[in-house]
Write a protein that binds this DNA or RNA. Structure first.
Length: 108
DNA sequence: AGTCTGACGGTAT
DNA sequence: AATACCGCCAGAC
């Protein structure tokens, strides 16, 4: 990775915030991006999270969905791991989308 | 160096 | 309400 000082900080913050997501709750890329001060860079959040899948850092990336509550990242996750992890936390996933998403939404 | 794409989201039509 | 388009940033070709 390039990893300039600023970039590294951005990713690190993403991991930190995602790790703070309570079990059984979910959040959105936009919420994280906004919390970091870059509300328009939600894509970077998702991109950063993808790195964590290959990285040694564990972050509950399965708790992060898009603003629609849809598990867009489930394609990148191996198999249906994302859905299984969510259901393991009492989060119901219907048609690749979090049920009662609005109620489960957690904002840092 | 130019162009396209992508775990997104907001605004415009 | 549904669809299109644009902005953001980084990576791949």
């Amino acid at each position: 990775m390039k990893s300039n000082n600023k970039d590294n900080d951005f990713y690190k913050r993403v991991y930190e915030v995602v790790n703070r997501i309570p079990a059984g709750r979910v959040t959105t890329y936009g919420a994280i991006a906004a919390y970091l001060g870059t509300p328009k860079s939600a894509r970077m959040v998702g991109w950063a999270l993808k790195q964590t899948l290959e990285s040694e850092e564990y972050v509950p990336a399965h708790r992060v969905v898009n603003r629609n509550g849809m598990l867009t990242g489930r394609h990148t996750f191996p198999g249906n791991t994302m859905t299984e992890l969510l259901e393991a936390e009492n989060i119901k996933v219907i048609n690749n989308k979090v049920a009662n998403f609005k109620n489960l939404l957690w904002i840092p």
